[in-house]
Design a protein around this nucleic acid. Sequence first.
DNA 1: ATAAGCGTTCAGTATGAGCGAACGGCCGTC
DNA 2: GACGGCCGTTCGCTCATACTGAACGCTTAT
Lengths: 254, 254
Amino acid sequence: MAGTARNPVKSTRTTFTVLDGLKELDGAGVTELATHLDVPKSTVHSYLSTLEEEEWVVKDDGVYRIGVRFLEYGAHARSRTDVYTTAKPEVDRLAEETGNLSNLLIEEHGRGVYLHRGEDTRAIQVNTRVGTRVYLHSTALGKSILAKLPEPRVEAILDRHGLPEVTPNTITDRAELAAELEEIRERGYAVDDEEQVQGLRCISAPIVSASGRVLGSVSVSGPTHRFKGTYFTETIPDSVMEAANVIELNLTYS
Amino acid sequence: MAGTARNPVKSTRTTFTVLDGLKELDGAGVTELATHLDVPKSTVHSYLSTLEEEEWVVKDDGVYRIGVRFLEYGAHARSRTDVYTTAKPEVDRLAEETGNLSNLLIEEHGRGVYLHRGEDTRAIQVNTRVGTRVYLHSTALGKSILAKLPEPRVEAILDRHGLPEVTPNTITDRAELAAELEEIRERGYAVDDEEQVQGLRCISAPIVSASGRVLGSVSVSGPTHRFKGTYFTETIPDSVMEAANVIELNLTYS
DNA sequence: ATAAGCGTTCAGTATGAGCGAACGGCCGTC
DNA sequence: GACGGCCGTTCGCTCATACTGAACGCTTAT
């Protein structure tokens, strides 16, 4: 499957280790980052000064930060996606219509990546930043994708990443997950009951192409105290499934 | 100024050369990218397989593409900007109010980087993607920043990047630019008359912090045939300056 | 004045980046 | 159905270079 590189470029790995460190520390000096990564500071300095010279990183008052130039890669990659352009307006509309947070997710390397977030003034704020990666088994968005993925792909993904327990509610048993996926296929939508974030519930539906391939999933999420009763079991699911449906239709006719 | 790295990491440079190649070609195979970059294919293969293993790049059917994971870096960098969060809603409002395209730009390494684009259904579509870098002298957004930057900084930037002619209308003379910057300071807003993109006009105003530092600039742009008369010399400038002003006020009280 | 902490420089050494050539699988073609 | 070309991948050699600890100079705090 994922053929491990035989001639890996160590410096490429280190480059991103450095960038990740900068992200985690939210900007740092040479010494600070060196201790954080447990790497000699002369080494860190080499990478940082190279990255700064190439304009991927900004140095301000001795503090190095990730440059906004990276937006270019992100926007490029996103626009190259099958769903983004068509789904975006619908995801925004979904947030407005329901007065909650809506999201668009796609699968990449067996994990989920948030592509877009629809916000509404009435929606509670959660820190799901675009580009954030999540496990597929612990979110409604991920589970609705898994439900539509071919069986062997699902197995490969679970083998690779396992079923880490994100919250006490996370499904950590493969058989239990398989049963849930079957239920999702019958019902048409997936439910996340505080399996990824405590106090947060979520309803999601997959986006499937005309040829039967899963392209991603949409969701609406909100606090447990608001997401209950028929609102949670009927109103929201209906809106989400309709949105997914509209996206699928727009995709086939364009 | 920009202290050149004494111990540059060549592999870091190569890594981004490879990624840039992937972006330009909009996804490519090993051989295709190798010819494009004029680098041995075994070398390209090393980098691509490493990047794929580290999940920065996606391999699909023998075609390598930049992964959406990069959105994470972009969103991170943007959010830790001084202006983004405060300016975003105002930039969106500006697009709606005027029915045109609005933009938010900041300076980085002497060039401009688009942080956000406000769209309106009535607006014409231009391919200014978020993260795109532009010269400061050839755009209204850039010029309004230059107008508020300290003189020596402006000199350093012009020394570094020169004044490349982007379109026939681009200002390529330093004295002429200096005069225009003075005019911008008096008037309070900058004008771009097809200096960056042919057929496109643009009005921009700088966003200045309470301490007098330029944090970025906002703009509204539209086609030449619509941007003329008092609409171009009064209506639009007023809206843009008001938006910049609101952003400045919101920044000081938060 | 002094010391501590920082970013930066330096030069030596082990390593791994870079490379050409060869391999093997997957097409389309004759 | 055998052949030839194309592509991704592997391999092992060689020299460039990533990596390091120690030293330098600068700023800031004491």
